[in-house]
Nucleic acid binder design. Sequence first.
DNA 1: GTAGATGCAAACTTTTTGCAGACTG
DNA 2: CAGTCTGCAAAAAGTTTGCATCTAC
Lengths: 141, 141
Amino acid sequence: MRNYNTQQRKILLDFFRSHLDEYFSTSEIIGNLKEYDISNSAIYRNLSSLENDGKLKRISKNGDRKTYYQYIDSSTCKGHIHLSCIKCGITTHVSDRASEKLASVLKEYNSFTIDNDETVIYGLCKKCGGSSFVLNSKLFR
Amino acid sequence: MRNYNTQQRKILLDFFRSHLDEYFSTSEIIGNLKEYDISNSAIYRNLSSLENDGKLKRISKNGDRKTYYQYIDSSTCKGHIHLSCIKCGITTHVSDRASEKLASVLKEYNSFTIDNDETVIYGLCKKCGGSSFVLNSKLFR
DNA sequence: GTAGATGCAAACTTTTTGCAGACTG
DNA sequence: CAGTCTGCAAAAAGTTTGCATCTAC
């Protein structure tokens, strides 16, 4: 029941590792890997198994019905809450110090135990925070 | 370009309003509405338009590739961060006081501006927080 | 009356699966 | 060598669309 490190799995991991902090829809992944020797079924099967292994995270965006995946670098991601910018799409992590504060606030006020690995907080990153922009035909400020 | 309050739209809204705090996959919705007079295309078209109107929120769960929807009661949900229990699936809201604290922590430590309406925090609710359980063949404590 | 919604069936898109052959450890 | 994985093609599942008809306002 152990994973084999096949060519196709390597191709997928290489792709994601060269695009840290970005997410891709399944069809984008298929498109990006067209030039490589990998079948769609291998892509689907590996996406599932990598997600299961915690190496990829599945994401849903507002406005479309697609499935997105993002690489999870266990050394930097494991146990860290993700911050995803709804403008530029870049993902970063909540600092440890801040994570502790968030956890204690939720515990104290709502008796809720946050699961850092499962949680993605959406909003505007430092760079995008100041300017207004259009997403899904709506104006955000 | 204004929405008509059709029978089919009412059926959908009634269904969601009688299941506040729960989410459903598209196929579950179709299954639940089998007995009513509503076609699949009307379901799909209404789900999209209701999502667009902010009356429904689309959710993705770990482990499957389905699309889930949950009702957003604008009076209680608008502007409130959601808390979703990964054990029982029930959704609640972060209290206003706590929301402000969360926002300021993220701003201060990560220069990140949280979007309350887009964010769902996953973890264990008050009731489920104490006990261990199995999800997707994994043991959680 | 008219803009907008519905149902139906067909077209698409996306994802899964069975199986024989190929590859990994 | 044994257990896994792959490609292929077919099937299944999920979603969208065109069009004639119907409904809401």
